[in-house]
Amino acid sequence: MATVIASGEEDRILRTWTPIILRAILLASSLVMAVGIAQSLAFAPGFYVRRFHAVQHGQLHVRNGLAQLIDEMRKGDPHGTMTIGLFLLTLVPLVRVAFTFFLFLKERDFVYVTATAYVLAALAVGVLLGRVG
C-alpha cells in the first residue's frame, strides 16, 4: 500500500512540475534566440548572409567552447547569442530528466533512479562523442 501512495505522489509531483520546467526553459531559450536574430538584423546583416552562404557550401564548421560562446554573447555577438539559445534549448530534456532523477532518489525508487541516471549518463556520453567525432 505504501508503494502505491508513494507512486501516486511521485506522479502528482511529476505532472505538476514537468510542464513548468518544459515551458520555462523553452521560453527562455526562445527569447535568447530571438534576441540573437534581432542583433543580426540590426548590427550584422552582412555577416549573417556570409555565414549562411558558407554553410550552404559546407565551409562552416564552428566548434566553440561554452565559455567562449558566453564571452561572445556578452560582447553582443549575434552568433554567440543564438548558439547559447540553442544550448539552452537542449537543456529542456536534460533538466527534465535530472528533476525526475532527484525525485525518484528522494522517494528511494531505485529502479527509476537507475533508469534516469542511465539517460543522464548517455546524454553526457553524447557530448563527449561529439567532441571527439
Binding site: L22, V55, R63, M82, T83, L86, P93, V119, L129, G130
Partner: peptide, 28 residues
C-alpha cells in the same frame, strides 16, 4: 521525442554541426 532528439542534438552541437544562423530561426 524531446529527450531522444536532445541526445542527438547534443552530439551535433558538440561536434560543431549545428549552424546557429539556420538552427535558431528554424527552431523558432
Amino acid at each position: 521525442i524531446g529527450v531522444t532528439a536532445g541526445a542527438g542534438a547534443l552530439v551535433f552541437l558538440s561536434r560543431g554541426d549545428v549552424a546557429a544562423t539556420i538552427a535558431a530561426p528554424v527552431a523558432l
